[in-house]
Simulated assay, not measured.
Amino acid sequence: MGFALALEASSRTYAAAAGDGERPRAQRVSRRDDPAFTGLGDLVAQTLAESGAAFRDIAAIAVDIGPGGLSSMRAAVAYANGLAFSLGVRLFPITSLELMAIAAAEKHDGPFLCLRRGTGGNTYAGLFADGQLAELRHGPHDSVVPSIAGGLDRVSLAGVPAADVAGLLPGVTITDTGIAEADVTVLYQTARAAMSDPERLVPIASPVNEASLIFHNQAAR
Rank of each mutant, 00 (worst) to 15 (best):
R56N: 09
D57N: 14
D57Q: 11
A59F: 02
A60V: 11
A60N: 01
A60P: 07
I61G: 00
I61H: 00
V63W: 02
D64T: 03
I65K: 00
P67V: 02
P67S: 02
G68Q: 10
L70K: 06
S71L: 15
S72T: 12
S72A: 15
A75Y: 04
A75G: 03
A76E: 08
A78V: 04
A78N: 00
A78Q: 00
A78K: 00
A80Q: 05
A80N: 03
A80M: 11
G82L: 12
G82P: 07
A84H: 11
A84N: 06
A84D: 10
F85M: 11
F85G: 05
S86T: 15
S86L: 08
L87A: 05
F92Q: 08
F92V: 00
P93L: 06
T95R: 07
S96W: 00
S96C: 04
L99N: 05
L99K: 07
M100H: 06
A101F: 03
I102Y: 05
I102L: 14
E106R: 15
D109F: 04
D109W: 01
D109K: 11
P111Y: 11
P111A: 10
F112W: 10
L115F: 04
L115R: 06
R116T: 13
R116Y: 10
R116F: 11
R117K: 13
G120N: 01
G121W: 02
G121H: 03
N122W: 06
A125S: 05
A125D: 08
F128S: 10
A129R: 15
Q132E: 15
L133M: 11
L133F: 00
A134D: 13
L136C: 02
L136Y: 15
L136M: 09
R137C: 01
G139K: 01
G139Q: 10
H141K: 05
H141C: 01
D142G: 01
D142T: 15
D142V: 02
S143T: 14
V144G: 00
V144F: 04
V145L: 03
V145E: 04
V145M: 08
V145R: 03
P146A: 03
P146V: 05
P146W: 09
S147P: 02
G150T: 08
G150M: 07
D153M: 01
S156K: 09
S156R: 12
L157Q: 12
A158L: 05
A158H: 10
A158C: 07
A158K: 06
G159P: 10
V165G: 06
L168W: 12
L169P: 04
P170V: 12
T173H: 14
T173F: 11
T173Q: 15
D176T: 06
D176R: 08
T177L: 14
T177P: 07
I179M: 03
A180W: 08
